[in-house]
Amino acid sequence: CHSECLGNCSQPDDPTKCVACRNFYLDGRCVETCPPPYYHFQDWRCVNFSFCQDLHHKCKNSRRQGCHQYVIHNNKCIPECPSGYTMNSSNLLCTPCLGPCPKVCHLLEGEKTIDSVTSAQELRGCTVINGSLIINIRGGNNLAAELEANLGLIEEISGYLKIRRSYALVSLSFFRKLRLIRGETLEIGNYSFYALDNQNLRQLWDWSKHNLTITQGKLFFHYNPKLCLSEIHKMEEVSGTKGRQERNDIALKTNGDQASCENELLKFSYIRTSFDKILLRWEPYWPPDFRDLLGFMLFYKEAPYQNVTEFDGQDACGSNSWTVVDIDPPLRSNDPKSQNHPGWLMRGLKPWTQYAIFVKTLVTFSDERRTYGAKSDIIYVQTDATNPSVPLDPISVSNSSSQIILKWKPPSDPNGNITHYLVFWERQAEDSELFELDYCLKGLKLPSRTWSPPFESEDSQKHNQSEYEDSAGECCSCPKTDSQILKELEESSFRKTFEDYLHNVVFVPRKT
């Protein structure tokens, strides 16, 4: 048989008469490798580009789960590009990614509803959504962080984005990388972005840091009482949809009607710091009717980097990364020049730590249904340095008659930039024990000054392991946590139920 035959053949030295091919099969003959313009397919066939392209389009058009959109890589027609490569849609070739590779997620039936953290986790790592997304989240724990972890990498949506009755959302900033909504599939009414009845939605994105392009379709905003109209108009300008909307697409009466839409800028007039305090004062603000001013709200939190936005980490279910302080308005003076500047002394802060701070007014709604208010920009203030805590785990070892090696770990709280350490030492008198000992005694162990690591005695271990207080009263049991108490109650309830079950099964009433 021919060298490319495997198993047997019907005619000697003829690659077209093989029972099976050793390498690849091409047009009725066995070959060692697939010549151009053919590609290896499933490690035994040679196919042309049209064959591989037909497989790709067949799966793409069917949208069946589990099928493969075949691509070409290293002269092979394979189910998908290997790690580190992405497909070129024009020629199906796998090309190296520039940075992290995109991950295209194809949605069944063309859309997916995100109504819980669990459903959001199914899209973790996706960068391109081939379909439409509907966000409908009523509640949950730590929602802002969970949504950002699972949806934060999405850069492109081919269909539309719909935010509907998501009472738990305060902001859409968890879509931190969303840059493009194509609108290839539109919501009824030709809408590519749809926001309806979101009672706590206050911000779409921080438009000073976020760009969003909507290729096709219109915007729809109705019944978002805490979303200011200025935020919607800003989205029109940034996304390129200005002029597409009709009169009733953006409701003037049901958007922002319960919001404090600040239209003035508060400026800080005085800032002073110490290692654990920050004193702030800002310019006074009074609405047209000074009785509408209820006070100020001061927001602050630790910020290692200057990239904080107002609604980071917030949701309507209680999660809030900001510390909020309510401040009463100052006494009002008739003389504008003698107006008191409101302020606040922030206490209990960490030394040498940068804080993000902003302040906003708290006002009631005027009778004319106009909203007044003022808010400052987010500023960054760093507390002063102070003395560091003591170095940890000092170790001293003498390696000769004239040297001592000293080692330690950095302090747990540096409280500033540590530039150097101060080492103090003092000579001590020799131990009298060394002169009084009889060095001729056998088995004498000389006193040693070398360091030995501390260890816990058996008594201390027994005390720590004991669940009861000892007789001397030195140790006591740790208080039980809520989960331990709940577990004990469940076990007790189970024992009672099981005992009742045994009584009912074992003891049967005697027939009379």
Rank of each mutant, 00 (worst) to 15 (best):
L147C: 03
T323K: 10
I134C: 14
C126T: 02
I134M: 06
I327R: 07
V324Q: 03
N136M: 11
V308S: 09
V128T: 11
P351D: 01
Q203H: 06
R272K: 00
D326G: 03
E109Q: 06
S398F: 15
N141E: 11
F296Y: 00
R272L: 14
L196C: 02
S402D: 07
Q306L: 10
N141G: 11
D393P: 13
R347I: 09
P388S: 03
N198A: 04
S166E: 03
D115Y: 13
F221L: 09
K267E: 02
I214C: 12
S321D: 04
L147A: 14
I137F: 15
Q245N: 13
T383H: 01
I157W: 01
I154E: 00
R244Y: 05
E246Q: 14
I154N: 01
D292S: 11
I278S: 03
I163H: 00
A144I: 14
T273A: 14
P391V: 11
D326I: 01
T127N: 12
K350C: 06
P336K: 05
W408V: 03
S338V: 05
V381I: 11
G189Q: 01
L294S: 04
V324A: 14
F268G: 00
N334W: 05
S338P: 14
K360T: 04
L212S: 02
D289T: 01
R202K: 06
D312C: 01
A316H: 00
T185D: 05
H233Q: 04
F311T: 14
H233I: 09
L227N: 00
N334Q: 14
C261P: 01
D328G: 06
N320L: 08
G256S: 06
W322G: 04
R179K: 10
E109W: 15
L392C: 12
Q121P: 01
R247W: 09
L252K: 06
D206P: 08
Q314E: 05
E264N: 04
L201H: 00
T353Q: 10
Q203L: 13
C317G: 03
W322T: 02
L133Q: 00
N307W: 12
N200P: 05
S239R: 13
N255R: 08
R179F: 12
R138P: 04
Y380G: 11
Y167K: 13
W282Q: 00
R244C: 10
C261F: 02
Q199S: 04
V324F: 05
E262F: 03
I378K: 09
K112H: 15
A316Y: 15
G140A: 08
L212E: 00
T241Y: 09
S402Y: 05
V324Y: 09
F311V: 03
L172R: 00
G348W: 15
S116K: 03
E231T: 14
G295M: 13
I214Y: 05
V363C: 02
N150F: 06
V238K: 12
S208T: 11
K277T: 13
T361L: 07
A316L: 14
K234A: 14
V104L: 03
K162L: 15
T383S: 08
N248C: 03
V397L: 15
E283L: 10
F299A: 09
M297Y: 04
S333D: 11
R291W: 01
L186G: 08
P287A: 03
E283I: 08
R369G: 10
E368W: 09
L201A: 07
L108S: 07
V104C: 11
T361K: 02
P287L: 06
T323H: 13
L227E: 00
K234N: 08
N141P: 04
K103G: 12
N399Y: 05
K177A: 11
Q354L: 12
N387H: 13
S132Q: 15
D367R: 05
T386G: 04
G140T: 03
R124P: 07
E302D: 07
S321E: 09
K337D: 15
L153Y: 05
E302T: 08
T213H: 15
E283V: 15
V381P: 06
Q121V: 03
F358P: 00
W322A: 03
W344I: 15
I378T: 10
F358K: 15
E302L: 05
K177D: 08
Y191E: 05
P330W: 10
D289Q: 02
T273D: 03
L147N: 02
H341Y: 09
L219N: 15
R247P: 07
L298T: 10
G256V: 10
T383N: 00
Q199W: 06
T241D: 10
A374Q: 15
N255P: 04
S338I: 06
F358M: 07
I135L: 06
G189K: 04
S402R: 05
I378Y: 09
P284Q: 10
K253H: 10
I157A: 00
R247Q: 13
D312A: 14
P411H: 00
E156D: 05
T118M: 14
K209C: 14
R291E: 15
K226T: 10
K112V: 08
P330F: 15
L178P: 00
A120G: 08
P288G: 14
L229N: 01
L293Q: 05
D115G: 07
D367T: 08
T127S: 12
G313F: 12
I278G: 00
L143M: 09
S171H: 14
F311Q: 08
S319K: 05
P304L: 12
A195D: 03
F193V: 09
N150R: 04
C228Y: 03
N211D: 10
I135T: 06
R182Q: 12
V324K: 02
E155A: 03
A385K: 14
E122D: 04
